[in-house]
């Protein structure tokens, strides 16, 4: 455009809502007298309006479900914590007493021995399984009654039974990581069935 560059700057300032009153007045006066700038300004505002008019597109219906399916799995005992939060009447203590009546502890956990699946590149130190940095383990890794620290890569799923999983920043697992706390799993199952029974009792009253 042949016209004055500062006028175009004023247009942008105007569109950014950062124009001074003084410059706004200058812009207005100029647009009054200059058809070229008027059409330039008009086209720019029209372009913006067209961009803004594009329909609002919504994410697909299964979007959230798919995100939730692809994030690393939560530890199972969270389910119980959430349950307790949502059912404040049942405090942990009262649950404990209810469950103790069933003498649950004797039925749980006979085999407490450390065990790990046999693969190359797995290092074991005091019931801690280590996948060293820069190493790749092929296949699913299962650890029982011990912890795992992943600094390298696992090409498969990692399952930790009665242990903790630590992932280094550079660590990588191509499959799923599942941490199973047998004690909690068992409790969880018990809580759900006992809880239901208790609430049923309430409803009947």
């Amino acid at each position: 455009m042949s016209c004055h560059e500062d006028i175009v700057d004023y247009m942008h300032d105007y569109l950014d809502e950062s124009i001074t009153e003084e410059n706004k007045e200058r812009l207005r006066e100029h647009l009054h007298s200059c058809a070229e700038c008027r059409s330039y300004f008009h086209d720019m505002k029209k372009a913006i309006a067209l961009v803004q008019s594009t329909a609002r597109i919504k994410a697909p219906d299964d979007f959230t479900a798919r995100v939730m399916a692809s994030i690393p799995k939560e530890k199972k005992n969270i389910g119980m914590k959430r349950y307790l939060r949502n059912h404040p009447l049942l405090t942990a203590a009262s649950l404990f007493i209810v469950l103790m009546g069933g003498s649950i502890f004797s039925t749980w956990g006979e085999e407490q021995n450390f065990a790990v699946s046999k693969q190359e590149n797995i290092v074991v130190e005091n019931e801690m399984v280590i996948i060293p940095a820069g190493k790749v383990v092929k296949g699913d890794v299962v650890v029982k009654n011990g912890d795992i620290r992943i600094e390298g890569e696992v090409n498969g799923d990692v399952t930790v039974i009665n242990g903790e999983q630590y992932m280094a920043y550079a660590g990588k697992v191509t499959g799923q990581i599942v941490v199973i706390d047998e004690m909690f799993e068992w409790l969880w199952f018990k809580v759900k069935s006992t809880g239901k029974a208790l609430f049923k009792g309430d409803e009947n009253e």
């Binding site: 942008h12 569109l15 330039y40 086209d43 720019m44 029209k46 372009a47 913006i48 067209l50 961009v51």
Partner: peptide, 10 residues
């Protein structure tokens, strides 16, 4: 960006 869109959508 505005300048480009102005040209493209004029």
């Amino acid at each position: 960006g505005r300048e480009a869109l102005r040209k493209q959508l004029s």
